[in-house]
């Protein structure tokens, strides 16, 4: 379990990073290394060069941009977890941290690293997909923004172009007066990647009408999926249990789902639906409990 030999560079600016990435097709970005280092050790990843972005100051930090919360790609998961702005304005993301690895891995792991790694069952990519966040990628030629819906292409495959660097994530801030979020996950051991997981965020007006809804499921197959049809069907309802069940069941039936040793495809389809329903029910409850 020793990596294939590689070069290591630590650029001092985003521009330099992009130039290095553009110049070397066998280079890979390393940040917290919580996924990449084990893959290097197993020789599943064999880059010729590692470009360490962890100490680039402009990639770290959380800021309020009005309609969005912006998180620098190299911000540590632990720093994000405990950031007051995340609790206040990105409550769904705040909800998932206890499920991500262990405190020790969250001290090292970064937000952008988890998204760029694109494990289909990882929690942060699910939040990003559920909220259809914007993912900002810098190249030597300039900056592009990719919606999460177009970002995840397959297991460990993203839309980051060759030579591109993920620089920040923009999570939309919902304006509904009453907001509720929930997250559910099933795995054999608490800190593992999910067999299946579900996230929901709902907004209510002053009555019991749901005015905004997002629900997503991870661990089903190629990448985390946002159940748009279900969300659309639920907006305008009171999010009663029957409506939730109908909407989720219809959405689940359309999905392509994989099975493995740990959980069959049938399990993931059935329990994915269970978790999505539970997430929506809990999110509704949380929203209705919000002080008006």
């Amino acid at each position: 379990m020793k990596p294939v030999p590689f070069d290591y560079v630590r650029p001092t600016s985003i521009e330099e990073t992009c130039a290095l990435l553009a110049a070397d097709g066998d280079a890979r970005v390393i940040a917290g290394g919580q996924s990449l280092v084990p893959m290097l050790a197993m020789r599943l990843a064999r880059p010729a060069r590692l470009i360490d972005i962890l100490r680039l100051p402009e990639l770290s930090g959380v800021r309020d941009d009005g309609n969005t919360v912006v998180i620098g790609a190299a911000t540590r998961q632990a720093a994000t977890e405990h950031h007051p702005l995340i609790k206040a304005k990105a409550p769904l993301l705040a909800k998932v941290f206890p499920w991500i690895g262990h405190p020790a891995t969250r001290r090292r792991g970064t937000i952008g690293g988890s998204i760029a790694h694109a494990d289909p069952s990882a929690e942060i990519p699910l939040v990003v997909a559920t909220l259809d966040a914007e993912i900002v990628v810098r190249e030597a030629s300039g900056e592009t923004t990719i919606n999460a819906g177009e970002f995840f292409l397959g297991p460990m495959v993203t839309a980051i172009p060759q030579g591109g660097l993920l620089t920040e994530i923009r999570l939309p801030v919902w304006s509904q007066p009453r907001l509720g979020v929930s997250f559910h996950e099933v795995n054999a051991r608490h800190s593992d990647f999910a067999f299946v997981c579900a996230a929901a965020q709902v907004g209510f007006d002053e009555t019991t009408h749901c005015t905004a809804c997002a629900v997503g499921i991870g661990g089903l197959g190629e990448f985390p999926v946002r159940l748009d049809r279900a969300a659309k069907a639920l907006i305008g309802t009171d999010l009663d249990h029957a409506a939730i069940a109908d909407a989720v069941d219809a959405a689940m039936a359309e999905l392509d789902i994989w099975g493995d040793l740990h959980a069959s495809a049938e399990y993931r389809r059935r329990v994915g639906g269970v978790l999505a329903r539970r997430a929506l029910i809990d999110a509704r409850q949380a929203a209705l409990e919000c002080p008006q």
């Binding site: 054999a188 067999f195 040793l261 740990h262 959980a263 069959s264 049938e266 399990y267 059935r270 329990v271």
Partner: peptide
Amino acid sequence: IRLAALGDAIA
């Protein structure tokens, strides 16, 4: 006893 297999059997 894998939990998912248990879940499938219960279902």
